[in-house]
């Protein structure tokens, strides 16, 4: 890949079996994402946003075409290689937070670093740094059930960011949040993007998120219909 391109999709097609036939969720997707982008896949439900995000995140492979992420061909990755790619280089933020309910905030954020087998002192420092970025140092020992929706999503962001991934994929991160919490979360993401140069790719149809995007890729019925770049609206 060239010119800081960290994700390159060439003719990506994704089909799912439906009954005896097949449903084509993505049709001939050709896209490039450069390092440090703050971009989003925008479109209505069923347009293929999450499917594309899953392919970029190596959770799924394309049925046709090529998807290269950080110089690795997703379609050729073994389960172990894909897991390693996600563990070290890709962070995920989910609409429903997907925090591990029996873990404390600290343990949730620590989890990806445990998988990396990072040594304890470094791990603890990284976790505390991440929690500090997100303003959660007073919730270290709380469990997800004791947190508000906004706090849960901030924990999820801390968990995604703690390993300093090159790419952060956020699937409808504000769908379950009120307006104030959404803005709070998005500002935190913008700050992380600016400070750590992490590439953010959203899947969203939330207007609040779209306002923050510097690149908007519109998907309709599995095809890219618009790809526009814009300067983010100044919120500071």
């Amino acid at each position: 890949m060239q010119n800081n391109t960290i994700v390159q999709l060439d003719g990506v097609v994704k089909r799912f079996p439906v009954g005896r036939g097949q449903f084509t969720a993505l049709k001939d997707i050709n896209l490039k994402f450069k390092a440090g982008e703050f971009s989003g896949l925008v479109g209505p439900s069923g347009s293929g946003k999450t499917t594309l995000l899953n392919i970029i995140g190596s959770l799924d492979g394309p049925s046709e075409g090529h998807a290269r992420v950080l110089d690795r061909a997703v379609e050729n990755l073994s389960h172990r290689e894909a897991a390693e790619l996600r563990n070290y280089h890709i962070g995920f933020i989910f609409q429903t937070y997907n925090l591990l309910p029996v873990y404390t905030v600290f343990e949730n954020v620590e989890f990806p670093l445990l998988l990396q087998k990072m040594e304890k002192s470094k791990r603890e420092k990284a976790v505390m740094d991440a929690l500090e970025w997100l303003g959660l140092t007073d919730k270290v020992n709380s469990r997800p059930a004791q947190l508000s929706g906004g706090e849960c999503q901030r924990v999820a962001i801390a968990r995604a960011m703690v390993k300093r991934p090159e790419i952060l994929l956020a699937d409808e991160p504000t769908a379950n949040l009120d307006s104030a919490n959404s803005h709070h979360i998005l500002k935190a993401m913008v700050r992380l993007n600016r400070d750590l140069k992490t590439t953010f790719i959203f899947a969203t149809h939330d207007a609040k998120v779209i306002k923050y995007l510097r690149r908007k890729i519109v998907l309709e019925d599995g095809s890219v219909t618009k790809d526009e770049k814009k300067e983010p609206r100044s919120k500071s």
Partner: peptide, 11 residues
């Protein structure tokens, strides 16, 4: 979620 965060099937 565990798998998305990088856990292998074996793990």
């Amino acid at each position: 979620t565990d798998m998305a965060l990088g856990m292998t099937r074996g793990q």
